[in-house]
């Protein structure tokens, strides 16, 4: 059952990601991205990380993507024109993808995870355990991220403020 669900949502996820790149209409790309986010949330849920799964839906699908759609609606963005491809992608992207893939496969082969599937709740699933980890083991990362978010908010305020001239 687990494996079946994983395959279903993995296919959804990869399919959505490909559709995101292929679609010409901006709104369809945005909707595909929502599918990707949703299926990622389901994969988190299959791993037993229920809190992370729900937060993924609330933050990404429910808030960030709504803003994307909002902007697309505001700008009334139409079809995208297909470009002839960029030189940066040609000379750095493809070799980068190749090298990154080799490194990734190498790491996976070296630290091969054991084949026993995870049980629901085997990871740090519930909210209290996630909170405990955030405020003890990963406190520094948590605080640094919060400073980053604060800077982003201040940047938004500066950009949005009316000039007093």
């Amino acid at each position: 059952m687990h494996q079946f669900l994983f395959i279903v949502f993995a296919v959804f996820c990869a399919g959505g990601a490909i559709n995101l790149l292929v679609q010409r209409k901006t709104i369809n790309s945005a909707l595909s991205l929502i599918v990707v986010m949703g299926s990622l949330a389901m994969i988190y849920l299959l791993l037993g990380a229920e809190f992370v799964a729900v937060v993924q839906v609330i933050i990404y699908a429910g808030a960030i993507m709504v803003l994307y759609i909002f902007v697309i609606m505001l700008l009334n963005a139409g079809d995208e024109e297909a470009s002839k491809g960029s030189n940066v992608a040609k000379y750095f992207g493809i070799p980068g993808l190749f090298i990154g893939g080799i490194i990734g496969i190498g790491v996976l082969l070296k630290h091969r995870p054991n084949d026993t599937p995870l049980k629901l709740g085997a990871l740090y699933g519930p909210a209290d355990q996630v909170g405990m980890l955030l405020f003890t083991k990963y406190l520094l990362a948590f605080e640094v991220t919060s400073v980053l978010v604060l800077i982003a908010i201040m940047g938004a305020v500066v950009l949005a403020r009316r000039s007093d001239s």
Partner: peptide, 12 residues
């Protein structure tokens, strides 16, 4: 055990 968050997620 994340019931409330799921409700909020569906609402959003």
């Amino acid at each position: 055990n994340v019931g409330l968050l799921i409700v909020l997620g569906i609402t959003s």
